[in-house]
Amino acid sequence: MAAFLRSKCSSVGRTLMGGLGNNLFGAVNSHVEAVTRPSYCDAICQQVRTFIQMRTNLKVVDNSGAKRVMCIQSLRGKKGARLGDTIIGSVKEAQPRGKVKKGDVVYGVVVRAAMKRGRNDGSEIQFDDNAVVLVNNKGELIGTRVFGPVPHELRKKKHLKILALAEHVV
């Protein structure tokens, strides 16, 4: 019952944000979780993009079976994870008969982040959403495909398999 109520509340909150572009609500929420929102909302409420930290929801862009992962720990340090960093997450939504189930604790590599990240040449790169590719504790991929664009910075982090499987490298 409690879970049901919470889910209802969160959905109401999200519609409020989407409809009214309530900046205050967004600011409060961004501390707790940086939900990946569709791009039409971005223009209305210019949310401050933050690190991927505890309770950040991330989209899973491989065919491991998970759809949404919530960050429960970033393996980066105090501030949180950024583009190319590894996180620990718990699977919140999963497809049936996938390699991972709902409630599993998994490792993941952040392949897209909405917060901008400086590049080696001094420019910056920013993506549409927060996305993750699931790996095991040795850094091997769980799925066999990677969807969408990934940054070439993963080469430096020695995730060559992700780069090889990716559709686009930018």
Partner: peptide, 10 residues
């Protein structure tokens, strides 16, 4: 080089 920002759409 060193200027500006890149935005990558999905």
């Amino acid at each position: 080089p060193g200027h500006g920002i890149q935005f990558v759409r999905n």
